[in-house]
Design a binder for these strands. Structure first.
Length: 428
RNA sequence: GGAGGGAUGGCAGAGUGGACGAUUGCGGUGGUCUUGAAAACCACUGAGGCUGCAAGGUCUCCGGGGGUUCGAAUCCCUCUCCCUCCGCCA
């Protein structure tokens, strides 16, 4: 959520930024509602003061036995009360309306974020590694997976329908090895505390993480129990400290969480229909930082470097891309994607997003009401939060299988994963 | 699923319609005393909105929402969460 004061003071800047972001938000309505709200607030508060004073006087009059005067005063206060009730009702509607509209205003990009309408204007920041040079025709992971018997698409679909899959044998083990290795590196080498959060959350948690109300269509929901299924660990992690006031000394806090992720992916119907790139159920190891405002951009670089470190140790070629304004999404002020090289079908190859690292500044903290105090007695301020994938084992399956394939269709197990696979060196 | 009991400040815990401007204790911060510390004593010690250059003024908040009343922490309705017991269950 954006600071209402900021919108009030910079309405034109907000509106031009919305154009850069290639999106829309009801700024004029917000300003108008805000204005109405403050006018009514002044009115109703003056009336309340009148009633507070008047009601107290009734108590005194009754004690002094001046019954008639008390009755007259009651009559007057009753009228004041009616006025208050009427204005309160107006205020309630305006405030609900205002809050609802504020929830649809995206975050502002950080200074220096490249301006552009779509992904074509993203900027490649750096590359690492060399795409493999095959002296044979490389296969896509869906062919490799089926031929090796480690991914069973047919049966996944039989059980649950399109965009579902099943790992089997060494495939299931490879997936688990990636997961466990990511977690171990995170907690041993990157300084994270591992967290196992709920996967189903209340609506308020979804609002705090800025996934509701705007992205309702992309999430699974249990209407009977009123639970939302998380599409990323970012959701519960954002809400860990919701409605709390932290001490500055507690920050930064760095959490790492391995969770399933559920996505309806309604908006992407027809895209990436083959393989396991875009599915309804996957897992992800997520990094999440809670920081002081002045430290958050250092932490963004740290999160990206953590994701890079994992790729380097796996020996996967990748590039870092900075998102332009049109590709920032709803919550991020600055965002980097980590894209791994995958050979793909026909040996054309492509850069596939395997991690997305964002500094959302105070955007989620304001929604979830996460504050801190610099010292005893100081004013509360909102913290900054950051998130990044580190990494999604399902997507990494694709990258590992396709990059480490051999001419005979077997797959070399990256060295760092072998201890997690009982020493297995080749899947064949 | 059934029965019952609860939710008050950082914590404990009083308060059942007007002196609540929320008692008291603990914890915390500052001070007095002391060579220093402890003890003792004194003072201060929640969050947010509106308004104002500021000092300040004012309003709201006793789990959330609604209601009764001139007036609600207190009475009524409702929701959420927690606890105890029974049943069921991986």
């Amino acid at each position: 959520m954006l600071d209402l004061n900021f919108i009030r003071q910079n309405p034109d800047k907000v509106k031009t930024t919305l154009v850069d972001l290639n999106t829309e938000a009801p700024i004029d309505e917000i300003l108008q509602l805000d204005q109405q709200r403050r006018v009514l607030l002044k009115e109703v508060e003056a009336l309340r003061q009148e009633r507070n004073v008047g009601s107290k006087a009734i108590g005194s009059l009754m004690r002094e036995g001046k019954k008639e005067e008390a009755e007259a005063q009651k009559q007057r206060m009753s009228e004041v009360g009616d006025k208050i009730k009427a204005i309160d009702e107006q205020l309630r509607q305006i405030e609900a309306d205002l809050y609802d509209k504020q929830l649809y205003v995206p975050n502002m990009p950080a200074p220096g974020v490249p301006v552009g309408p779509n992904e074509d204007h993203n900027i490649e920041v750096r590359r690492w590694g060399e795409p493999p040079n095959f002296d044979f025709e490389p296969k896509p992971h869906w062919d490799l997976g089926e031929e090796l018997g480690i991914i069973d698409f047919e049966r996944g679909v039989k059980i649950s329908g399109t965009r579902f899959y099943m790992f089997k044998g060494a495939g299931a083990t490879l997936h688990r090895a990636l997961t466990n290795w990511f977690i171990d590196v995170g907690i041993n080498d990157h300084g994270y505390t591992e967290v196992y959060p709920p996967f189903m959350v209340r609506e308020q948690a979804m609002i705090g993480a800025a996934h509701l109300p705007k992205f309702r269509d992309n999430m699974y929901y249990d209407a009977e129990e009123d639970y939302w299924f998380i599409g990323t660990a970012e959701v519960p992690l954002t809400n860990v400290f919701a409605d709390e006031i932290l001490d500055a000394g507690q920050l930064p806090i760095k959490y790492l969480s391995h969770t399933p992720c559920f996505r309806r992916d309604k908006m992407s119907a027809g895209r990436d229909v083959r393989g396991i790139k875009r599915v309804h159920q996957f897992e992800k190891v997520e990094m999440y930082h809670y920081t002081l405002p002045e430290d958050s951009y250092d932490h963004l670089e740290e999160i990206v470097s953590n994701a890079e470190d994992l790729c380097q140790r796996l020996g996967l070629p990748y590039r870092i891309v900075q998102m332009c304004t049109g590709d920032l999404g709803f919550a991020a002020a600055k965002k980097y994607d980590v894209e791994a090289w995958v050979p793909g079908p026909n040996g054309e190859g492509e850069w596939m997003e395997i991690s997305s690292c964002s500094n959302v500044e105070a955007f989620q903290a304001r929604r979830a009401n996460i504050r801190f105090r610099r010292e005893r007695g100081a004013k509360t301020e909102f913290i900054h939060t950051l998130n990044g994938s580190g990494l999604p084992p399902g997507r990494l399956m694709i990258a590992v299988m396709e990059n480490y394939q051999q001419a005979d269709g077997s797959i070399i197990v990256p060295e760092v994963l072998r201890p997690y696979m009982g020493g297995l060196e080749v899947i064949e």
